[in-house]
Design a protein around this nucleic acid. Structure first.
Lengths: 221, 221
DNA sequence: ACGAAGCTTTCTGTATGCAAAACTAAAAGT
DNA sequence: ACTTTTAGTTTTGCATACAGAAAGCTTCGT
């Protein structure tokens, strides 16, 4: 008689940890959970209506991925990067994105080309509407489309990972409609580079795009 | 009175999960746990003398890192890659290592140069002694030294990660003393490229080295 | 008033319990 | 003989218990 019926309201069982992990990732990517913020097990327990065990497992997986870091005192916190670290992560991203653009330009299928074009169309529409959140999503989708165009899911996964990681920091650089339009415009030459099927042009285009993105991001952090 | 004294033989507390995680990683890297092999929670429970909870957490973290994968039926197994996947992972590694070599050549400090040289010296000694395991370790150390020479710990971490992941597959290509000597020899021009401080020479050198390594690995898998 | 020592509270790490799910094997029906 | 049922077994997922450690708080001595 230690406990009341605890199994009564179980969700389908077996998805709990994944659900929590995904929810936390989303919150972090969307900035709902700010870098440096502490995550408390019991609070999450209440939020998700489960016991500490699955919460713990989700937190542990997120720390294993470097999305969370063990706090100075107790608990875990959302990873936060100083300028130095940010620069290192961006440099890495820079290299991988450049490689993706080069490979994509060499292997471009008709489907991939269509996906990139339509993703860019969404970017342009979103930029013109001035809807920042929507633009950010469209921007991610475009980059994802480029990653997929490499035909290398593994590389694409790595690139996505880095992008997710830097999401909260890059987010700050989109403040006005003009920022969005400028970014969308910058995509044009990047895409033209990839479509040129000349790998040098493609990687140079991406390099320029990423460098610009980094400079803006650094200015905001 | 449900249980006897269970805390009696505790290790210092707080290192259990990390210890297990590290031990499993090592076993996987060393091939003690073969790709595809299933890991059973209770068996590990006995091996490490702890309850399922920390085992579970360690396994979960390893799956989050992609080192283990959820099995088709139950449990988790050591990730195993087909030729296709292996090619994708190698392509990714190829890109990152190439980038590392280029960046290292641009930023080479005296210390880094010394570390690379001494790592290579160990490689040569190990190759001449014909000690395969020792050579493999020395080889890893050399690559790690190159990663560190980029001055970008984040990128170095990513590269190490990939290297660890492909470890069990690359291992198979070192069978005879001749293989070791050939590999050590191949390092010479790679290193000369990095020391040349011409980034193009450096990245080309690494590209050649990695391509050769990949071809040999693919032949054995 | 300030710091050290002790006390209290909160939090974490690990063990254990239990029910649902997945697998296995045996039995029954076609 | 071969599929379908069903009973049994193993394994997983989650909840909970509880001890030990860390942080916070109080009290006391200076």
């Amino acid at each position: 008689m230690i406990k009341a019926d605890q199994t009564q309201y179980h969700s389908p069982r077996g998805h709990t940890v994944q659900r929590i992990e995904a929810a936390l990732m989303d919150d972090i990517a969307a900035g709902v959970l700010a870098p440096g913020e502490r995550l408390d097990e019991v609070t999450l327990t209440e939020r998700f209506g489960v016991s500490r065990t699955p919460i713990r497992e989700a937190l542990s997986r997120l720390t294993a991925q470097g999305i969370l870091v063990p706090g100075e005192k107790r608990g875990v916190r959302v990873a936060q990067y100083g300028r130095e670290e940010l620069a290192q992560i961006f440099e890495t991203m820079h290299e991988i994105e450049t490689a993706c653009a080069r490979i994509a330009s060499q292997r471009l299928t008709l489907l991939a080309r269509a996906e990139i074009e339509s993703a860019q169309a969404v970017c342009v529409t979103a930029a013109e509407s001035g809807d920042i959140l929507r633009y950010m999503r469209a921007n991610e989708a475009l980059h994802e489309a480029i990653y997929r165009a490499t035909g290398n899911p593994y590389m694409a996964g790595l690139a996505s990972d880095l992008r997710r990681r830097t999401g909260p920091f890059r987010a700050k650089k989109f403040a006005t409609k003009a920022d969005l339009v400028a970014s969308a415009k910058s995509h044009e030459s990047l895409i033209a580079g990839i479509f040129s099927e000349d790998s040098k042009t493609a990687s140079d285009g991406m390099r320029a795009h990423m460098t610009a993105s980094f400079l803006q991001t650094l200015a905001m952090n």
